[in-house]
């Protein structure tokens, strides 16, 4: 087990190092996310009550697009430089590679979300300290990363990768997006977290199912 984690950790570390050197993903995706949030705050009056009802949806639209952008950059970097080939030649199982890439993407997405969240809360005049929102974001992002990693791998090998990832990703991610929006709505309206229990359960089930399924299917997405 610890050997497995060590291998996964090595791949994560590789991605972190490359990110530290190129600053390719986190910065650009963060700027993108903030821009999306700003556009939405222009589109609606921030003082109105309606915005509180809509803000959950706005947040997750921004995070969904940001997540796809980050994932596609992360996988595109691997295929463009041919480093995915190198990675696949490593004497490890395919699911180790999947878990490594997944965890690295998850980490970057969470960093972006952590930075974008305060900006969101301020722009939309919401309470600035909402720890339970972090839980929802963490859980939903795991689901995003699970299906996103395998779909980004597939999309990176097609002719129209920018458009292919959303086409593959969004329909499958619908349950997570709905549940995350609903749970966020519950939290923003100040109700106790237990009201959102079934939504959190759905996200948890989605995470578990698709982590296993994607890790298993990853082999077929990268085979030559």
């Amino acid at each position: 087990m610890s050997e497995y984690l060590g291998k996964v950790g090595a791949i994560i570390w590789k991605d972190i190092l490359s990110e530290l050197r190129t600053k390719d993903i986190v910065t650009s995706v963060l700027v993108f996310t903030v821009l999306v949030l700003v556009i939405f705050s222009f589109a609606f009056e921030p003082e109105s009550e309606v915005i509180r009802l809509l803000s959950g949806g706005i947040l997750w639209v921004a995070f969904t697009f940001a997540g796809m952008l980050g994932l596609s950059r992360s996988m595109a970097a691997e295929t463009d430089k041919g480093s995915l080939q190198g990675l696949l030649l490593c004497p490890v199982d395919r699911d180790v590679i999947f878990m490594g890439k997944m965890a690295a993407s998850l980490l970057f997405m969470l960093l972006v979300e952590a930075a974008a969240m305060p900006i969101f809360l301020i722009l939309f005049n919401l309470p600035v300290f909402l720890p339970s929102l972090a839980l929802v974001a963490l859980m939903a992002t795991i689901g995003f990363a699970a299906i996103g990693t395998i779909f980004a791998t597939i999309a990176a090998n097609t002719k129209a990768r920018e458009i292919m990832l959303p086409i593959l990703f969004i329909p499958v991610a619908v349950p997570v997006i709905i549940a995350a929006v609903k749970a966020t709505g519950v939290i923003i309206s100040g109700e106790p977290l237990s009201t959102a229990r079934s939504w959190l359960l759905i996200i948890a089930a989605f995470d578990a199912i698709f982590l296993v399924l994607s890790a298993f299917l990853f082999e077929f997405a990268v085979e030559e």
Binding site: I154, N157, P171, V172, I209, F210, L213, S214, A221
Partner: peptide
């Protein structure tokens, strides 16, 4: 790729 998409879709 399509087969992978179909299986994920079927579960989804």
């Amino acid at each position: 790729y399509a087969a992978v998409v179909a299986i994920i879709g079927f579960v989804d």
